[in-house]
Design a protein around this nucleic acid. Structure first.
Lengths: 246, 246
DNA sequence: CAGTGGTCTAGACCACTGC
DNA sequence: CAGTGGTCTAGACCACTGT
């Protein structure tokens, strides 16, 4: 609802120029949260472009949460201004290899049991479900870099009962044997208890970063895992550039 | 390079069906890392659709890292299988409000100085730069939920020198006054030192989650901030569904 | 019920890159 | 230099939703 003199810089694809120009309006607060931005049709005539091109720019702004789009009403600058950051969680084997180090794997324990109460009461697994509980650690040049504590749903993955997991990390094994359809993550800090400290070769009570991942296949939780990293490890999150592609 | 009998499920937009069908081939390992997937032109004839629709599906798979695309060569299943997760960092005010609690802000300290050595040697700020150093905390219903430790580049934002920051949180103030173009984050765990423990009302040495954010405007770092959350706080990361939109 | 965005088409030209 | 993906166009129909 202000002047819509979008300035394209002529650099790169047209839809990125449009995205950049609009993102600039928003980050510079010329278009403020809640403001309606021009309709696709208006931008088409203003910028002398086709609607698909304008649409591609607006879609990507919507994907990144900078704008909100509503049929019949129009597109609006998002009221909840937030920053998105793409968090990429690579397989630890790849990560260690990318560091130029030698990957190592050690199984700590592996046994079949009923799903424990803390997981059933959190509605992660149904009560009485048979699961495998695996604890293991991952090393880079012999130094522990990750402690893994994982439960695998035996109803969904019966083959896991016959796998010893003493050579193959459970993550890799699962990737090979189970098609997953969805994953959900939580990330938080924990203090190392004595056992964790010993496994990771760190001091007791040292702060560690923990990623919790729940993986589904269809509507069933296939596996639930804690990945605990020593606290000195920084997990880098990707850059976010509102002016660039999403 | 396998059979390309893609099964569309007829549910939702065509490009999502195509994306889902290809994602299933990949997660089920029928198409394995490194395999070439059908060309856009092949998919067009196989699926009887236009190229733009196929392209939209493949683009979104590439955005999420499931496939890699190379001109003249084709599209390939990514060799580095990793999981993407969109990490959304909302303004703390909004987050507290969304929780149905009352937001509170308290300035701890605010003073102008030269950029400290730890930031200049990390090439975050140039040596001798004038900055404002702000420490403050954010409360939900009177309970501390975030401690903020921020530096603002006075060369890029001279107006920050005249702002007392005793009413307005620096994050909000900056959003209002500075157009930013890029942000980079790192996330890691820290142990609460006595001062932090006091500010957050937690025990000394308790594990805390810290988000480090560096924000640019053009090619200059505008602000650098540590956001430290009590460790019991879980930061939820978005879901990732390879079969769904990116 | 009218107008917006969501999707789709059947073309097109071009840049890049393996061969 | 030929073939792939990257981009763009000028249309079209439809679903949803404010009014």
């Amino acid at each position: 609802m202000t002047d819509l003199a979008l300035q394209l810089d002529g650099d790169g694809p047209l839809y990125e120029q449009i995205r950049r120009a609009i993102a600039l309006k928003i980050t510079s607060r010329q278009w403020r949260p809640g403001d309606r931005i021009p309709f696709e049709s208006e931008l088409c005539t203003t910028l002398q472009t086709s609607r698909m091109t304008v649409n591609k720019a607006l879609q990507s702004l919507a994907d990144d949460g900078l704008i909100v789009r509503r049929r019949k009403a129009g597109s609006f600058v998002a009221t909840q201004q937030s920053v998105q950051a793409p968090l990429t969680i690579a397989k630890i084997e790849d990560e260690v290899a990318a560091d130029g180090k030698t990957y190592g794997y050690e199984l700590v324990s592996c046994k079949a049991l009923k799903a424990p109460g803390k997981l059933t009461s959190a509605h992660i697994f149904p009560r009485g479900l048979d699961v495998v509980h695996i604890q293991c650690r991952h090393l880079a040049d012999g130094v522990p870099v990750l402690f893994e504590d994982r439960y695998i749903n035996l109803k969904a993955v019966p083959a896991a009962a016959d796998e010893p997991f003493n050579e193959t990390p459970p993550g890799s094994w699962l990737l090979e044997h189970v098609p997953w359809t969805e994953a959900e993550h939580a990330i938080y800090a924990v203090s190392a208890d004595p056992r964790l400290a010993e496994h990771l070769h760190i001091a007791v009570a040292e702060a560690c970063l923990r990623i919790e991942r729940r993986t589904w296949a269809d509507d069933e939780t296939v596996t639930f895992v804690h990945l605990t990293y020593p606290g000195n490890r920084r997990t880098l999150v990707g850059r976010f550039q509102p002016g660039q592609r999403g």
